[in-house]
């Protein structure tokens, strides 16, 4: 085993981890506010990326296409929240989660109708050769993913810590009845969470898309891995979900590199089971902590 191989395993871990971390952040937003894991998040990932590819394909300036895709995903998220989530919000949590699964399937079907079965490629955000250390290479796009994840974290922190609206949202998540008693509209808060969560899902899709070939069903794997990341983090905080996302990526890459590519998935899921076991013993009760993050 030479040093370039070990560096490449690290780069691979960083690539996988950055994708899982960003996905975990976008999943966390909706969870943080409404305590619901949206299984449709992977579809916003796909919608964002494919909308951007379509827009740049017809000649729209890339930054504008980026902004438009985020807006469209946020709008789609809001419509879905209004039309489909709100009517079932007063029922059980199970019903709401089942509804998000139904939305996920419906959106996948819609994406198939809109973009067909074929795969799409997307241009990297900045041109240039990958970063090379000895024989190892890291795509520059991975740095974009890490940067966007960092920026998203910072914005979320600023919002929930420093703005009145953010504090109101936290309040409504912690104590919906109390929050509504002091005049915070739970409806508006949920709407906001969905539109932002969907928008951030689209951002994740657009930043990750240049790494691989995207088609209508590509949202499932990032969604599952993002979900595993927030499960490992114990649903405690968004930064913890990011750390868990990177941890997951590195575990995967190092188990491919140092153990066996045949059993890497088994190793990843074994780690998940062990972490969940330890967590369930160590921590009592789930939920985001009292602080904003």
């Amino acid at each position: 085993m030479d040093i370039s191989q070990i560096i490449q395993f690290t780069f691979s871990g960083l690539t996988l981890g950055s994708i899982y971390a960003l996905m975990a952040v976008s999943l966390s937003i909706v969870y943080k506010v409404s305590r619901v894991i949206s299984f449709a998040q992977g579809e916003f990932f796909v919608f964002g990326a494919l909308t951007m590819i379509t827009l740049t394909g017809i000649g729209v300036w890339a930054p504008l296409a980026f902004a438009l895709s985020v807006l469209m995903a946020a709008l789609l998220g809001s419509i879905i929240e209004q039309a489909l989530i709100r009517p079932v919000l007063k029922t059980t949590l199970g019903t709401v989660i089942t509804m998000t699964i139904a939305i996920s399937l419906a959106l996948r079907g819609l994406a198939l109708l809109l973009w067909g079965r074929g795969s799409h490629t997307s241009a990297t955000f900045s041109s240039g050769e990958p970063i090379r250390i000895l024989d190892a290479a890291l795509q520059i796009q991975v740095l974009w993913i890490v940067g966007v994840t960092g920026a998203a974290l910072l914005l979320i922190w600023l919002f929930f810590e420093k703005t009145m609206l953010g504090i109101a949202i936290r309040a409504s998540a912690d104590n919906p009845v109390g929050a509504s008693l002091v005049g915070i509209s739970i409806r508006k808060v949920n709407l906001l969470a969905w539109s932002w969560g969907s928008g951030l899902g689209a951002v994740a899709g657009m930043v990750v898309a240049p790494l691989y070939f995207l088609q209508y069903g590509s949202g499932v794997l990032p969604m599952v891995n993002g979900f595993i990341a927030i499960a490992i983090s114990g649903l405690k905080s968004i930064p913890a979900a990011v750390v868990a996302g990177f941890f997951l990526g590195f575990v995967e890459a190092y188990s491919i590199g140092f153990v066996s590519s045949q059993f890497s998935e088994v190793i990843v899921f074994t780690v998940l089971i062990v972490v969940l076991q330890i967590r369930s013993k160590a921590a009592s009760g789930a939920g985001f902590d009292e602080k904003g993050m």
Binding site: M1, D2, S4, Q5, Q8, F9, F11, S12, G13, T15, L16, I19, S119, D135, A136, A137, V208, L211, Y212, F213, Q215, S218, V220, L221, P222, A253, I256, G257, S261, E265
Partner: peptide, 30 residues
């Protein structure tokens, strides 16, 4: 490798260490 994985550079780095003259990947599409 998992056909849905977004990165297979770790596997390729390992293979390169064995100095093959060609890589076979019996897979289709993406």
């Amino acid at each position: 490798f998992d056909v849905k994985a977004p990165d297979v550079t770790a596997q390729l780095a390992k293979l390169r260490g064995a100095n093959p003259g060609a890589i076979f990947s019996f897979t289709t599409g993406e």
